[in-house]
Nucleic acid binder design. Structure first.
Lengths: 136, 136
DNA sequence: CTACCTGCAAACCCTTTGCAAACCG
DNA sequence: CGGTTTGCAAAGGGTTTGCAGGTAG
């Protein structure tokens, strides 16, 4: 119930490592990375810390059309490109999404708009040769 | 390995029922609906048929920031609005997304762009009163 | 007939949780 | 010290899959 958060070694290392990356790692990838410095850390701890860091606005959770959550320490407003083959997420600096609003749902359905989320779908350099099935 | 698909009763009913809806149901919701007409149908069959119908381009899989897949028989190009409280997806007719492209990733990373996916995040009429944690 | 499809149930993957011990402040 | 946090392991939810029996063409 409290709002006091302690800076444990686990939390510090997770944040340090995430900030070192621009690859938007999954929880599992973070687990692998952090384990090099804290071999006994558990995956549950990684999830709990990433979730808390996101709640306090220190990092962001990146939810793409892919199945796994990804995490990003870059809080600036930027667009992500998602590889439909491997799920990798890369930044698209300079891309600027714009949504010219329409009328939500069956006329005036009372939908209160908070934000817009745009991602670019494609195939990354490592995966060239395949096709997509991500939808919009 | 074949490309021949049979029109089974299960497949026909799933497609009929999906076409009757504009609510972008989850697999589980489809299961509930179809079971009224085919009580013994299994959830696995529902998933397999929805997947195949999507592969053949008859329907679309709608992947939002939410955890569950949703399905849509409306193949036209349209924007979805996602409720962050309940996950419901509604259509936003008239909304037109535009992405002014930037340079993908670390200069010329070879990302081949296929599409853009935009969704509107907000709170639906039934859920007014809460807040968000969906990211972009 | 027979390749494709179904129902069932178990397997899978990712994420979340309960709990007792460890730890920060 | 006392409330947080951890490690472990099990539970949870959504989706996928193996299999043997059923069925469309």
């Amino acid at each position: 119930m409290s709002e006091h958060h302690r800076m444990t070694r686990q939390r510090r290392v997770i944040l340090e490592e995430l900030r070192r990356l621009s690859t938007h790692p999954t929880a599992d990838e973070m687990y692998g990375i952090v384990r090099k410095r804290i071999p006994k850390i558990s995956l549950g701890t990684v999830y709990r810390n990433l979730e808390m860091l996101a709640e306090t606005g220190t990092i962001r959770i990146v939810r793409t059309c892919g199945r796994q959550m990804r995490f990003d320490a870059d809080l600036s407003d930027h667009v992500h490109a998602v590889c439909v083959r491997c799920g990798k997420v890369i930044d698209m600096p300079g891309a600027s999404p714009a949504v010219h609003p329409g009328i939500p749902g069956p006329a005036g359905s009372g939908f209160r708009q908070i934000a817009t989320r745009t991602e670019i779908i494609g195939v990354c350099a490592d995966c060239t040769g395949g096709e997509a099935e991500c939808e919009g």
